[in-house]
Design a protein around this nucleic acid. Structure first.
Lengths: 206, 206
DNA sequence: AACAGCTTGTGAAAACATTCACAAAATAAA
DNA sequence: TTTATTTTGTGAATGTTTTCACAAGCTGTT
């Protein structure tokens, strides 16, 4: 398969969101142009993005909302549910844990770990925060697909090394640090400081 | 000035981080290659990024850590402090509020707003959560530079319209929705669902 | 002073991503 | 059935970003 760029994948995610809104609104057909307007891009971009995966539209008509919805879910691997573990039961971890959108889209948090003895044992929903020492074995046993890292920067690389060794191949990192992972592991960073600094740059340059 | 790409700005942010680490480690000189290794990029990329803003290095030697640190801070507008308001006092808002890195880098949260009467009036550090109705006036009065949006998706566009009308020109959005803002306003999105979906895609495509 | 060893700064080349532009396919109306 | 209208899918053109490659400049050594 041809190499798909990260920006294409990001946009697919957005298209999916608009399709869900359109679907909720009872719309059953949508054009590349409508999709584009909502995502701040162009209709050509939408069509090009989709064209990497097939021809989903009807000329003269546009796309069937439910069908395109299903197709993009398939493309992104969202027709199945993923087992997620959360490492770090601090403020950010806790906010992520109760973030409804995750569950809604098939990302199920199945385990939470922390090193802090005052946190271990706490009940989070129907889970119990477990000791960090149990993590490595638990990741394998539970067949965890993805790990969300929400620990302090100093601890993050150590956690990730263990997570990778335990066979996990996708990591979402919230710690403000650039992690090293083998190229076989997918890594995304949510780096709030970088975003704020980008805004700062934008403010002084116009 | 020539147009600087968003990726360049992002990388400058990362370089800044490494320089701070290097500085803490007592290093006083660093090469583009060392900077590159840590950021997962190439030395040519580092030099090109910096070259948009000037010549900060010494051939044969590299860059002076404290000087490059200062220069990048200047470029990113971090030598001053920014006044930030937080809209949304839920889980995510609360996690962001106590995120030490922000204050550390000159982003000072000066006001918190929410619509929920059970939250309004609560003491957060030395601030009090204020009613959403006070926001528009307060943003102007306090001379807020940036707003962090941490409200539910349904409420986000409404908040942003008011924030823009109040003269704020930089917005960091955590709501899972594509916001519309005038082109004069800088907007960054932190979209955790998009990131997770990107990981999902990566998992099923290798 | 000349040389060896590094590392920067930068045009030019290559790779990658977006936009253009239009033939092809679908529908609806006459 | 023909025509008008719409919108897709896609090569080709354009624009942007990254990488290459090397002269120029700095330091330390002989």
């Amino acid at each position: 398969m041809k190499k798909i760029s990260e920006s294409t994948v990001r946009r697919l995610s957005l298209y999916l969101r608009f399709l869900q809104e359109a679907s909720d609104g009872g719309l059953d057909t949508i054009s590349s142009d409508e999709l584009a307007q909502r995502g701040g891009t162009t209709s050509a971009q939408v069509r090009k993005d989709l064209s990497f995966f097939g021809s989903f539209g009807k000329r003269g008509l546009g796309y069937s909302v439910p069908e395109l919805l299903r197709q993009i879910q398939e493309i992104l691997g969202l027709s199945r549910s993923w087992k997620v573990a959360l490492v770090g039961a601090g403020k950010i971890g806790s906010a992520l844990f109760s973030y409804r959108d995750f569950q809604l889209r098939g990302f199920h948090i199945r385990a939470v770990f922390d090193t802090d003895p005052t946190k271990v044992g706490a009940a989070w929903g129907d889970l119990t925060v477990r000791d960090d020492g149990e993590m490595d074995a638990a990741l394998r046993e539970q067949g965890i697909d993805m790990v969300i890292v929400a620990v302090p920067a100093e601890a993050a690389q150590g956690v990730v090394d263990r997570v990778v060794k335990a066979g996990v191949r996708a990591i979402l990192n919230f710690a403000p640090i650039r992690l090293r992972v083998p190229s076989s592991v997918a890594l995304r960073n949510v780096d709030m400081t970088v975003e704020l600094e980008g805004l700062s740059f934008a403010l002084i340059n116009r």
